[in-house]
């Protein structure tokens, strides 16, 4: 895979991570808004929202690098009725618009609570649609290794797993930032973050096994498909086997590290070390695993026919 093709893993993984993280953040917001005052709630989600917005921007910019004529990319939306690519672009832009609007409203402290809440849920729905359209692009009869529902599930699993991990890291860093600035009620906020970390670690742990299961199903699917799919399978278990093992390994270590950190420091509270670095490294490992997975997704496909 040459450098230009790396634009696709950049776009898809970052976009899925941003949408998954946004969903996690909004669910957290909905869960704690009755417990926190509006100002505290804003402090909890403002920085994470800005980081997610930046991630979406980077993803959208990155997507243009695999185009031969990036300046004409907007023309792709003209085929909305017939093209999943057009739909992906439209929903991506809409998701971006929602996250950008929410970030702006959050920074300027404007917007009523019901409106903000509804807008966030709309953003999640648009993001989910964008991921679905993103995955549907690859369901092509000529691409045997891609043309399976596992592709859709894989994209969603990436969104949930990476979104959970990213949000855990962002919440910990944001908490530390607010502690340094001594802003608001740190005790209440720390309680919310601890609870959120427990939930996020649990979700990541569950999704880890979903990802492992999807990989197993992928191998079984390729093996049963025969023909061109067999070549993809040989690539996966042959040339790219070290990377495939490495992917699963870093996912396991990354999620395991987060779970261990949360269990010992948050749940049981047997130690009180700084959570920033372990959560950060765990997130980095999972991200490497997911990008490797996306690389293998693109690298092992074999086109059928001319």
């Amino acid at each position: 895979m040459n450098l230009r093709e790396w634009a696709l893993p950049v776009y898809t993984v970052l976009m899925q991570m941003a949408i998954g993280g946004f969903a996690a953040l909004w669910i957290l917001r909905a869960a704690v808004k009755v417990r926190l005052e509006r100002a505290e709630l804003d402090r909890l989600i403002q920085n994470p929202l800005i980081i997610l917005f930046t991630t979406v921007v980077v993803a959208m910019i990155g997507s243009h690098f695999h185009l031969s004529r990036p300046y004409l990319s907007f023309l792709a939306i003209l085929n909305f009725r017939s093209s999943w690519l057009s739909r992906e672009i439209v929903f991506t832009v809409l998701t971006f618009s929602v996250i950008a609007s929410l970030s702006l409203l959050q920074v300027t402290h404007r917007g009523r609570e019901p409106f903000l809440s509804a807008l966030g849920w709309v953003g999640i729905a648009l993001g989910s649609a964008a991921i679905y359209c993103m995955s549907r692009i690859y369901l092509l009869p000529t691409q045997v290794s891609w043309n399976t529902p596992i592709t859709v599930y894989t994209f969603y699993s990436t969104a949930v797993l990476l979104g959970s991990m990213a949000m855990a890291a962002i919440l910990v860093i944001n908490q530390k930032f607010l502690e340094i600035h001594k802003v608001g009620d740190a005790t209440v906020r720390a309680g919310v973050v601890r609870q959120a970390l427990c939930w996020l670690a649990g979700i990541a742990f569950g999704m880890l096994w979903v990802v492992v299961a999807l990989n197993v199903f992928m191998v079984l699917s390729l093996r049963s498909a025969g023909g061109i799919a067999q070549i993809s399978l040989e690539l996966l278990l042959g040339l790219y086997q070290p990377l495939w093992i490495l992917r699963l390994l870093v996912l396991l270590v990354g999620v395991g590290w987060l779970v261990e950190t949360v269990v010992t420091n948050v749940w049981k509270r047997t130690t009180s070390r700084d959570l920033t670095m372990p959560v950060y490294i765990a997130c980095l490992l999972v991200m490497i695993g997911e990008i490797l997975g996306r690389f293998l997704f693109y690298a092992t496909h074999v086109k059928m026919g001319i």
Partner: peptide, 27 residues
């Protein structure tokens, strides 16, 4: 400065991609 604690969070994306990219070159 306090804001620099966000730098690792920002760098995590390029670092992850760079490491992944590097790992693929071993094949």
């Amino acid at each position: 400065p306090a804001w620099t604690i966000f730098i690792p969070g920002v760098l995590i994306v390029p670092i992850a991609y760079a490491i992944t990219y590097a790992s693929t070159t071993f094949i």
